[in-house]
């Protein structure tokens, strides 16, 4: 009898243990309550624009600034050569242009009016005027420096005017107009800094936008810690937050920064030549010729100086001689 009691006790215990175990089972996880386990919506960050760093071996050519010869005379807007790229654009009704919206003086959005304006933008207005007889037929596409080649290669835009330095490497995939502005790379530091150039900034953090000739040149100073940012303005934000010690960039762009921040100064002599050209899809040589004709005309009639004075006269001093266009490229 004692033995049976023990056995029964064991059996009961086992049953209890089993059922306690069963009772402890829960009905579904937290992910079930949330509807799905795969709720992690793919955070494909749209802000992270692709940046083209380009091939590492420098591409050489005889003369990067040499563009296609201009037309003999600028056709009237209503007499554009039929079948030409310009005629097609006129047909479409707008000139689609890739620009910056945050590079003060060259191309930036005026927060008060919402309009995008600057030296580069005015160049585009002149081209719009030549095609449509109306300077305002521009459809802006705001792009980062890193997107400049890509939007031209894919034909998404007709032109890019965004502090775009003419280089041999870029000629490999797109075409440029003749040089319309001659910039040079300088350095922006905090007021009171002793540095006069990149050579004085060993061991310091220097910001430059990704996908630019500026960043490439910065890499020639291995003792400087290069910090890439998606846009020029991001560099200024980082500088103001103390996350970088200096910014390097074209004097035009840095002038725009100094205008936004009284504690930032641009120092030293230019360490490079940055010939700006208007980017055009490689196939549209007729468009390049047309743009060159427009540029030659605005230099000749004084419009170029007028535009320079409007945007760059104050921060950079009186207008220099406009760059002398070089032609002679053959397709």
């Amino acid at each position: 009898m004692r033995a049976t009691t023990t056995r029964r006790g064991l059996a009961v215990g086992a049953a209890f243990a089993l059922l306690l175990g069963l009772g402890a089972c829960s009905g579904g996880s937290g992910a079930d309550d949330l509807g799905q386990a795969a709720e992690e919506t793919a955070t494909d960050e749209p802000t992270q624009e692709p940046t083209d760093t380009g091939p590492s071996t420098p591409v050489t050519c005889d003369d990067p600034v040499a563009s296609y010869a201009p037309l003999e005379a600028l056709p009237a807007p209503d007499a554009l050569p039929s079948g030409s790229t310009m005629a097609q654009i006129r047909e479409r009704g707008t000139l689609v242009v890739g620009v910056s919206a945050d590079t003060l003086l060259l191309g930036s959005r005026n927060p008060f009016t919402g309009a995008i304006e600057g030296f580069d933008i005015d160049m585009l207005h002149e081209i719009s005027r030549a095609i449509f007889g109306d300077p305002d037929r521009l459809q802006f596409r705001v792009i980062t420096s890193g997107q400049r080649l890509q939007v031209l290669e894919s034909g998404e835009v007709d032109l890019v005017a965004r502090a775009f330095t003419i280089t041999c490497e870029r000629w490999e995939s797109i075409a440029f107009s003749a040089e319309y502005y001659h910039a040079g790379q300088k350095v922006l530091v905090a007021e009171g800094s002793e540095a006069q150039g990149l050579e004085d900034l060993a061991g310091q953090r220097v910001c430059a936008p990704a996908g630019t000739t500026t960043l490439t040149r910065l890499e020639e100073y291995p003792e400087v810690e290069a910090v890439p940012a998606p846009t020029h303005s991001q560099c200024l934000a980082l500088f103001q937050q103390g996350q970088v010690d200096a910014i390097t960039g074209d004097d035009t762009i840095l002038a725009g920064f100094a205008a936004q921040d009284p504690y930032a100064v641009v120092v030293g002599e230019p360490i490079s030549d940055e010939p700006y050209g208007i980017g055009v899809p490689a196939a549209n040589t007729d468009m390049v010729q047309f743009v060159n004709t427009v540029l030659a005309q605005i230099v000749a009639d004084g419009t170029w100086v007028e535009i320079y004075q409007r945007w760059l006269g104050e921060p950079l001093g009186p207008a220099p001689e406009p760059p002398v266009p070089v032609y002679g490229r053959t397709a």
Binding site: R109, T231, A237, G256, Q260
Partner: peptide, 10 residues
């Protein structure tokens, strides 16, 4: 009216 505002917002 400083465009750097956009960078901060970003």
């Amino acid at each position: 009216g400083f465009p750097v505002g956009a960078a901060y917002l970003d």
